[in-house]
Design a protein around this nucleic acid. Structure first.
Length: 490
RNA sequence: CGGGGUGUAGCGUAGCCCGGUAUCGCGCCACAUUUGGGAUGUGGAGGUCGUAGGUUCGAAUCCUGCCACCCCGACCA
């Protein structure tokens, strides 16, 4: 693609003001790496929430809410977990401010907390501490809970959408009586994510498992979906973790089984975040702005009237009213942009920037001919179609667009998916077109780290559908039994 | 936290080397003409030049500290 607004995450800056702004409150109090999500951007997040939440409910989950603050001591209970998050925690140490006598507001040192509170970077610890009180018997299991929340991770380096210091997400935390059931849940939720990414976001993803090195802090196994962006870099779009009994042991959560034995509970956790908005933008956008798949778009159809006189406007209004009603019956969200403060060309450009999939332009000429101009955001094409049966035409067109956006992304990924059998080839592809590189790896963290140092590529995942195949590691020549996926990642 | 860079109107910028009270474009406001792809003309509003100090008759410009942001690394959804 051309060097456009979406070729890299950094290039958002040309238009992200439409969706978010970087939080910059004032002077010395800039909120580092956070973002203000403006209404239109938030509407996209709300669509994601609504669709995912429905799926969570359909798969038996309920929403709950746990505290933002986590006592520091909770963190130290699971060794791998604390090690994974220790370096990126915001810590609350005091609970009061005071006037220092000169009019300056300072932290009141007398108001020091006995135990510091951590602003949650993820909620496993506080949730498992709570679950201890909820679980006594196998009859209390499973617990299938999800939380919609914000979390804070004080990253060294932030990147809009992809790695902000505060982000919105959902985190599912489930408790099970058996290992098998927990693994099943982990895989089920990965499927929910993958299906959401592909069918709703129209972003094809690879389902896989992380290597030991890339695993979530405290998990026995981390499943993920990996998407490919238009610049050839991979993005982890969602994760589902099998936590084993690690957190149950750390927080002493036991239950009495059917057989009367006291056992530790099995756990999973899974989450997706506002990073999905970054994935959406970088997977589909073009130089004209966002391209939203119809199933996700907060506004699916925008109608722009073109008129000179009040009479013409009244005539168009009547037509649009009827069309709007017909579309709404079909569950299509419609925006009638009849602002008289902007000209049609301006509106066209603005709604394209915002990614609205279908635009209907209707003017006096159309009213005479019984037609409208129907424009597609994905292909940037337009045609004149009959007003007769227009709602039906649009319903079909939205499906076509959804499919086309997915196909386009899939084609891109297919052409950026390369099997290699030597390290030279590996480096050549990596520095050339990029994308996913499928190759044999000896299974050691040492090799993985060495490759990362030399090439910046990491193992994105071991694909779930990887077939057994004898081969040799392209880095060390040691035997390997299946291919893994490497890529440069965000 | 290391290395590099930047901070001037809502946004993007010129000016800085070589000190004399800030340039241009977009946007904004008013009026007129316009309205089928980001209108045009005329007039107008808007700036403690990131911040604190220093040098100087005089600082956006020179010096020092601090803050923030961006890029590259380490870290990560």
């Amino acid at each position: 693609m051309s060097k456009g607004i979406t070729s890299r995450a950094e290039d958002y800056s040309q238009w992200y003001n439409e969706l978010v702004i970087k939080a910059d409150l004032a002077e010395n109090s800039a909120v580092r790496g956070c973002m203000v999500i403006k209404p239109y951007g938030y509407a996209i997040w709300e669509r994601m929430q609504a669709i995912l939440d429905k799926r969570f409910k359909e798969t038996g989950h309920s929403n709950a809410y746990f505290p933002l603050f986590i006592p520091k001591s909770f963190f130290s209970k699971e060794a791998a977990h604390v090690e994974g998050f220790a370096t990126e925690c915001a810590v609350v140490t005091h609970y009061r401010l005071k006037n220092d006598g000169t009019g300056k507001i300072v932290v009141d040192e007398d108001a020091k907390l006995e135990e510091e509170l951590i602003v949650r970077p993820t909620s496993e610890t506080i949730i498992w501490n709570t679950y201890r009180g909820w679980i006594e018997s196998y009859r209390d299991l499973p617990i299938l809970v999800n939380q919609w929340a914000n979390v804070v991770r004080w990253e060294m380096r932030t990147r809009l959408f992809l790695r902000t210091a505060e982000f919105l997400w959902q985190e599912g935390h489930t408790a099970h009586a058996t290992r098998e059931e927990a693994i099943e849940e982990t895989e089920r939720m990965l499927d929910v994510y993958a299906e959401f990414a592909e069918k709703i976001l129209a972003v094809p993803v690879v389902r896989g498992r992380k290597t030991e090195n890339e695993r979530f802090a405290g998990a026995l196994d981390t499943y993920c979906i990996e998407a490919l962006m238009q610049d050839g870099k991979a993005l982890q779009a969602g994760t589902s973790h099998f936590l084993g009994q690690n957190f149950a042991k750390a927080f002493d959560v036991k239950f009495t089984s059917k057989e009367g034995k006291l056992e530790h509970v099995w756990a999973t956790s899974w989450g997706v975040s506002t990073r999905l908005m970054g994935a959406l933008i970088m997977a589909h956008s073009d130089d004209q702005g966002l391209v939203l798949p119809p199933k996700l778009a907060p506004i699916q159809v925008v109608i722009v009237p073109i008129f000179k006189t009040e009479e013409e406007k009244a005539q168009i209004d009547a037509f649009v009213n009827q069309l709007t009603n017909e579309l709404r019956v079909n569950d299509i969200s419609v925006k009638y942009d009849d602002r008289d403060t902007q000209r049609p060309g301006f509106k066209f450009a603005e709604w394209e920037l915002k990614g609205v999939p279908v635009r209907v332009a209707v003017g006096a000429r159309d009213m005479q001919n019984g037609t409208v101009e129907l424009a597609r955001r994905d292909t940037q094409t337009k045609e004149t179609v009959a007003q007769e049966g227009l709602a039906g035409t649009i319903v079909q067109l939205l499906d076509t667009i959804q499919e086309n956006i997915y196909q386009k992304a899939l084609n891109f990924r297919t052409s950026h998916f390369t099997e290699v059998n030597s390290y030279d080839e590996f480096k050549e592809v990596l520095e050339g077109k990029g994308g996913f590189i499928s190759c044999h790896w000896d299974g050691t963290t040492e090799t993985e780290k060495r490759v990362k140092e030399e090439t910046k590529a990491t193992i994105r995942c071991i694909p779930l559908d990887a077939k057994e195949e004898e081969g040799i590691c392209i880095f060390t020549g040691k035997p390997s039994s299946r291919r893994v996926l490497f890529a440069k990642a965000y």
